[in-house]
Simulated scan of single mutants.
Amino acid sequence: MTARLQNKVAFITGGSSGIGEATAHRFAEEGATVVICGRRAEPLEAVVAAIRDKGGNAECVVADVSDEQAFVAAIEAAAQRHGRLDILVNNAMAYSWGAITATETDTWHGNFATTVDGTFWGTRTAMRIMQQQGGGAIVNLASICGLFGTAWMAGYSAAKAAVINFSRAAASEGAAAKIRCNVVIPGVVATPATAGMLADDKARANTEKMIPLRRVGEPVELANAILFLASDEASYVTGACLTVDGGRSSDLYTVLD
């Protein structure tokens, strides 16, 4: 531990698994007091217990990020308990799969309720708190699906694209109050959300062929990028989009082995 986040309070959504869980561990290892948020108590409590077993400081709150009142109240209560909010990581997301022609309006909207609305509510709430305390850092999670058109995932792709440009606007507005807002853009990462596409050796191998580094990312690799943007090491970085995808988005023509 290098104490890069010593004495800082961080709130992380979607903290019960995957990238959110890995980020909670990395933040705690660097000295932060971590508050993780999610919809189910049991997995959240397991993450908190694991962090505490390693000597970290963590707690959890149960709240649905797509429920404005509950989510905003959770952030405000955490800031009140700890006297401040230094970092917000908007990691929670929702997605649907299917052809545009077969997508119902309610399903389309479901892609936005957590991913876009939740990111907006969280960012707005954090900015109001951070304005009063002299600054802070917000890191929003997008996806390479938000950079390129992705068949059968139109709603998710549109939602993640919205997160990217919303974050740029938040960075512009927050700068005068010393509030930084940046985006991490994952590629394919081994999380519960991607378990289906990595279900067997053949499926995983086919996916990895499309990635220049020839492997799927690990959650901790995303957590390390989030950690950098949340830390004072990135004090002059705002409005940036950091792609962490093994080179996938830089490769127009994949050379297959």
Score class of each variant (00 low, 15 high):
N206G: 06
L198R: 06
D201C: 00
A176P: 00
G217E: 03
E221Y: 08
D200C: 12
N224L: 10
A225H: 08
V188S: 14
V189W: 00
R204F: 07
A195L: 01
N206Y: 00
A205T: 06
T191H: 02
P212C: 10
D200H: 09
G217Y: 03
A199V: 07
T191V: 08
K202L: 14
A199G: 01
G174M: 03
D200E: 12
F166D: 12
P219Y: 11
A203D: 07
F166P: 05
C181P: 05
E221K: 05
R204V: 05
A225F: 08
T194I: 04
L222C: 03
G174F: 05
N206S: 11
R214I: 06
P212W: 05
D200I: 05
L198Q: 09
L222Q: 07
E173M: 08
V183A: 13
A205N: 01
D201G: 05
I226K: 01
D200S: 13
P212D: 08
E218Q: 15
M197H: 06
E173W: 03
C181D: 10
A223K: 01
K202W: 05
N224W: 02
E221C: 12
A199M: 01
K209I: 07
G174E: 04
G217W: 01
M197F: 11
E218G: 09
G187E: 09
M210A: 15
T191I: 05
C181E: 10
A203W: 00
A170Y: 10
G196F: 05
R214H: 12
A190E: 15
K202C: 02
M210I: 10
P219T: 12
L227F: 07
P212V: 09
V216W: 10
A223L: 01
E221W: 06
P219F: 12
F166M: 15
A177Y: 13
T191G: 03
P219W: 10
A225D: 04
C181F: 11
T194H: 13
A195D: 06
S167N: 11
P192R: 04
V189L: 03
M210R: 15
T194V: 11
A169M: 13
S167V: 13
K178E: 02
D201Y: 00
V184Y: 00
E173S: 12
G187D: 10
K178L: 00
I179P: 01
A175Y: 00
R180F: 04
A171K: 04
S172N: 06
V188P: 09
A169F: 12
D201P: 00
P186F: 07
A193Q: 09
K178R: 08
G187L: 09
A177P: 02
V189D: 02
C181A: 15
A171H: 07
V184S: 01
A176C: 02
A175T: 02
G217A: 10
K178Y: 00
R204S: 06
R214S: 10
T194A: 15
I185V: 15
P186T: 09
I226L: 06
A171M: 06
N224Y: 06
G187H: 10
A176S: 14
D201N: 07
T191P: 04
G196H: 06
G196D: 12
G174L: 03
K178P: 00
I211C: 11
